[in-house]
């Protein structure tokens, strides 16, 4: 039996999870929530993480009913993400690894999402749509790499949604994306927005500029409601995501889709992806907010796979990096 503890804190979530051979023993998490109209700044986020990380660690061990001695390996997020929060979490991971005398393992955050999705859904070899506040990628596995077939050429879809929420002052609690999703359910009027798909890549910055410019005018003139804007924005950006995913599937001849990342728990996105899969006779795999949104277990799971295939990170190599592409990691645990 291999027990891995995973530390995640690359953005505004701090999570610590414990995995024992595919079983999630515990996965507590805290979120740093900012007031409406504001995003989260790296230094404030790091301060938040520092304040709660030991409590979360205690919870993780208690809920799992384990002692440090039962842990075989300490995995942490090496990147990509915000510098200050990454440093905070890596520092704690490094410290406990030395205190407990356990090997360390630096994990790519995106790989964590993919491996967690595969574990929970049992998807075998899916085309992966990874959508979050920091990333938008269509990924497929080939020859020991998770290769990126399509991605955003500017900002991430979640970033587009978050920043739109700030423009019209939607609450960040529990998350801007969740609140947009709820409001969109009450929207009915479809407002035309820019639609930018380039091959298997997408672009969201144009949509954001357009809506930043137009939103408050449209609202004050009574042309549409905030709910209509949420609805139209979701319909547009999700259609773009489904389109590039389908194109990647057609390109790779894939019959499975796995959605991961924070935006992946949006039910409307899952629904649209499901319709596309139905039409192609493909199968959709998705998870809920526990595993879609950044969490510690996903880092533990990727760490578990890496550890079992013989990888460890030496102390002097246990740094972090803000930029770390999914396709940089050699996948030593898959054929």
């Amino acid at each position: 039996m291999t027990v891995v503890i995973g530390f995640e804190g690359s953005a505004n979530k701090i999570g610590i999870g414990i995995i024992r051979d595919g079983e999630v023993l515990s996965n507590p998490r805290r979120t740093y929530i900012t007031p409406p109209g504001q995003g989260f700044m790296p230094s404030d986020t790091a301060r938040h993480h520092r304040a709660v990380i030991l409590t979360v660690l205690k919870e993780a061990l208690e809920q799992a009913g384990l002692k440090p001695a039962d842990v075989d390996c300490v995995a942490y997020t090496k990147g990509p993400g915000m510098g200050a929060p990454l440093v905070t979490v890596a520092l704690v991971a490094r410290t406990v690894a030395q205190l407990w005398g356990k090997p360390l393992l630096g994990v790519n955050h995106c790989i964590g999402h993919i491996e967690m999705g595969r574990l929970i859904t049992k998807a075998n070899n899916p085309t992966v749509l990874y959508v979050s506040g920091g990333n938008t990628q269509v990924i497929a596995y080939s020859e020991r790499r998770y290769r990126i077939f399509g991605e955003t050429i500017d900002i991430a879809v979640g970033n587009c949604l978050d920043r739109f929420a700030r423009v019209i002052k939607i609450s960040n609690d529990p998350s801007p994306g969740y609140n947009i999703e709820q409001m969109a359910k009450k929207g009915s009027q479809y407002m035309e927005l820019p639609y930018t798909v380039k091959g298997m890549d997408v672009s969201f910055s144009g949509i954001l500029s357009y809506i930043e410019e137009a939103a408050n005018k449209m609202l004050s003139s009574g042309q549409c409601t905030a709910e209509d804007l949420c609805f139209s924005l979701q319909e547009t950006v999700f259609a773009m995501l489904v389109e590039i995913t389908e194109r990647a599937m057609a390109h790779c001849g894939s019959q499975e889709v796995l959605i991961v990342g924070g935006v992946g728990c949006n039910v409307r996105l899952q629904e649209m992806m499901g319709v596309m899969c139905d039409e192609r006779g493909a199968k959709l795999f998705a998870t809920d907010e526990r595993f879609c949104i950044d969490n510690g277990a996903m880092i533990a799971q990727a760490g578990w796979e890496m550890f079992r295939s013989g990888q460890v990170t030496e102390l002097e190599d246990s740094w972090i990096t803000q930029r770390y592409r999914t396709d940089e990691v050699e996948v030593t645990w898959r054929d």
């Binding site: 639609y195 319909e235 547009t236 596309m276």
Partner: peptide, 13 residues
Amino acid sequence: SKRYRHVALDEKL
């Protein structure tokens, strides 16, 4: 036509 996308968007695209 793509059923996953809004009718107006679908027709336009």
